[in-house]
């Protein structure tokens, strides 16, 4: 099962990172970064399967695919930003992690603009 591989990889990398952090801290950071990328790649096919199920559900519920695509993109942006900011925090660059989160927030809000406008128009149309 994938979970055993992932947990095993995590444990090994964790021990190695603890050892390396005292002797070569940059190598420890690179190691954790690599492990994170590997775990992300392992989970990518399963994320794709989940997203395709969401697309089917949304087409069943007559949800506009533009909205659904926007939501999935926003989830992806959140994950990637979280991934990047965690790596920066692990490397001791808290300021850089904050900047990444700031950029992700702006991107999410920009992507949400069509949905916000649609909500406003719906509400305005409801007013007699």
């Amino acid at each position: 099962m994938d979970i055993f591989q992932i947990v095993g990889l995590g444990m090994v990398v964790c021990v190695l990172a603890i050892i390396l952090r005292h002797q070569k801290p940059p190598m420890a950071t690179l190691l954790t970064m690599t492990a994170g990328i590997i775990i992300f790649i392992i989970m990518l096919p399963q994320i794709t399967a989940v997203f395709s199920i969401f697309r089917d559900l949304s087409s069943q519920a007559n949800v506009n695919m533009v909205y659904m695509g926007t939501i999935l993109k926003i989830v992806g942006v959140a994950y990637i930003a979280d991934f990047g900011s965690q790596i920066c925090r692990d490397a001791g660059e808290g300021a850089l992690a904050s900047k990444i989160e700031f950029a992700a927030k702006i991107i999410v809000l920009v992507m949400a603009v069509p949905i916000i406008v649609a909500v406003l128009q719906s509400l305005l149309k409801l007013v007699p």
Binding site: T70, I71, I74, V75, V77, A78, Y79, A81, D82, S85, Q86, E101, A104, K105, V108, L109, M111, A112, I115
Partner: peptide, 12 residues
């Protein structure tokens, strides 16, 4: 993700 982005995505 359980980070600060959670609230923003939830809003959208």
């Amino acid at each position: 993700p359980s980070s600060i982005m959670h609230d923003y995505v939830k809003l959208v």
